[in-house]
């Protein structure tokens, strides 16, 4: 018991970049204040789009005010140490499906080395126009039941928009990083990044309405670019608890 207490103390005091070991970051984003309404979108003339009754996916709020589609990623100019379990990029591709005239998922996470597979699950023609930086932009056509595979070679410093020019209300995002340390919040607003290198790191908080700036969390607050410094303990976890996002930021 005594031994256990000492170990805990040791863990807490050692959180700096030189430390070895791995930890977890988790938290939950909730909207504070009255959020903007999600407008219905003009579906155009395709029956499958009209039937889908598309609604704006820009601000998606779950039960209890959880904010979905917040992107959190390790922000480091140098490649961080990678946990041995995550050494290789996953062999399965990242799949983005055009379904009911929307991109599923709305925000996709891709690690360099993974393939990006684009699929069409609608009975109409789509295209996927990806505004990636650094010469990686593409715009491919996806006929009915069509499929396309794209290989990306450069990480993106911000999530990049993807769009369909035939159905202009369709909008999604692609997060492309060199390391596995990224997450997107679910409809409860929750996210988790596991097996992070222990030490003090900066994390980017981003939502498609902009940087999640000047947010207060229990361990500190994000700056005006939405970056927050967090000490990841070895063999432990940091829980940011409920991070309140002022509704004003989302308008």
């Amino acid at each position: 018991m005594k031994y256990f207490a000492i170990l805990l103390l040791f863990t807490a005091s050692c959180a700096n970049a030189s430390e070895s070991g791995w930890g977890t970051l988790r938290g939950r984003f909730v909207v504070a204040g009255s959020p903007p309404a999600s407008p219905e979108l003009e579906p155009g003339t395709d029956q499958c789009c009209i039937d889908a009754k598309p609604k704006s996916q820009r601000v998606v709020i779950g039960a209890d005010g959880g904010l979905a589609n917040v992107v959190v990623y390790l922000h480091s100019r140098k490649t961080p140490p990678i946990h041995p379990d995550l050494a290789a990029a996953p062999t399965e591709p990242v799949v983005v499906t055009n379904k009911n005239c929307s991109f599923k998922p709305h925000v996709s996470l891709l690690r360099i080395g993974q393939e990006l597979r684009l699929e069409n699950g609608d009975p109409t023609l789509h295209n996927v126009n990806a505004a990636l930086d650094g010469g990686e932009a593409f715009n491919v056509v996806l006929p009915v039941e069509g499929q396309q595979t794209v290989k990306l070679t450069r990480p993106q410093s911000l999530p990049a928009p993807i769009a369909c020019n035939i159905h202009k209300f369709m909008q999604g995002f692609l997060v492309v990083r060199n390391d596995p340390y990224m997450a997107v919040s679910n409809t409860d607003g929750q996210f988790e990044i596991a097996k992070l290198p222990a030490g003090e790191w900066q994390f980017q908080l981003w939502h498609e309405t902009g940087y999640l700036k000047n947010l207060g969390a229990e361990v500190g607050s994000s700056d005006r670019r939405g970056r927050i410094k967090i000490a990841i303990p070895a063999n432990g976890e940091v829980n940011l608890g409920k991070v309140k996002v002022p509704a004003e930021l989302l308008k």
Partner: peptide, 21 residues
């Protein structure tokens, strides 16, 4: 290849070795 920078998408393989529509 469509027209780079514009809405017109590519119908052939987007990169060497890719799938052509």
């Amino acid at each position: 290849q469509g027209i780079a920078g514009a809405a017109m998408p590519s119908y052939g393989a987007p990169a060497p070795g890719g799938v052509a529509v």
